[in-house]
Nucleic acid binder design. Structure first.
Ligand SMILES: [Zn+2]
Ligand SMILES: [Zn+2]
Ligand SMILES: [Zn+2]
Ligand SMILES: [Zn+2]
Lengths: 141, 141
DNA sequence: CTAATCTCTCTAGCAACTATAGCTTCAAGA
DNA sequence: TCTTGAAGCTATAGTTGCTAGAGAGATTAG
């Protein structure tokens, strides 16, 4: 049996985060000690590790919730799980593409190399006028 | 003179967002009409376009606040502005690197190609055990 | 038995907006 | 002039995924 602090230590998830996950229904409510303190077992630890790992891979909590409920039904088809991962991969690739466009644009701004006053500053100028940009980075952030 | 709706239309920034920027002190309070409605001029529009463009390039509002106050002092050295942009470029590159590691890992998970039940699902298995990962994606999100 | 360390609940805050409610003002047509 | 509809106003709360603090109670080592 683990107290919340030990569970935190074993999983690398901070104590308030564990309580937060419980609050939003991502983790089940554990039993309590006579003094009302949470007591966890191995199953809780595995579940929390799963959550942490999925978070490290960038999955949003909603997707993790779905993945968890799938993993609770071992006989179900894994197509749904694979779909969630595919979706996440897609989202990650989109973010990468957007960021790479930004990277190029920022690098271009800096490459113009200005060392004067703000009045002649290339970067301030470009920031003020998207027409000076090479890309169309219109899409939301 | 522009009403807030026209300013929104001309800059592509939504009306509530403009009011929000004013509230946090990013945009100056404009004059008001007799009926208490905001009235903007060309300077306001330029400033808001600057903000929007910087946001599109991923700058946080705090950095934009600094850039704006620099651009109000045309005789100042532009080193500070360049530094902010360099910092942003650095942040973007770091985010790209992190996302690329995630992308590889997710692609690897999917490439294992599983079409069975959850009990045998590779992706659920990998999510449950970071030891099956090729990367150390420990760092924050 | 006491002191130090956990743990408890609850509230509020972060970024950067977005959405809603309930009201007032404005512009144009009949 | 009246009326209707769009646009504007303020203020509050919600979003995501936590994090920080207050003030109280529980547990454990010496
Ligand atoms: Zn410069
Ligand atoms: Zn641009
Ligand atoms: Zn599968
Ligand atoms: Zn991993």
């Amino acid at each position: 049996m683990l107290t919340i602090g030990k569970l935190a230590h074993e999983t690398g998830v901070k104590v308030p985060t564990i309580r937060y996950y419980e609050q939003i229904g991502l983790l089940p409510e554990p039993d309590r000690s006579a003094g009302n303190q949470r007591l966890y077992d191995g199953a809780h630890r595995d579940r929390l590790r799963f959550v942490r790992h999925a978070r490290e891979l960038g999955f949003p909590l909603d997707a993790i919730r779905d993945l968890l409920s799938l993993s609770d039904r071992p006989e179900a088809s894994c197509a749904a799980a694979d779909g969630i991962v595919r979706e996440q991969l897609h989202a990650v690739r989109e973010r990468i593409a957007r960021l790479q466009a930004l990277e190029e644009e920022l690098a271009r701004m800096i490459a113009q190399g200005c060392h004067g006053t703000i009045a002649d500053c290339r970067v301030i100028e470009v920031l003020g006028d998207h027409a000076l940009c090479a890309h169309d980075h219109a899409g939301g952030d």
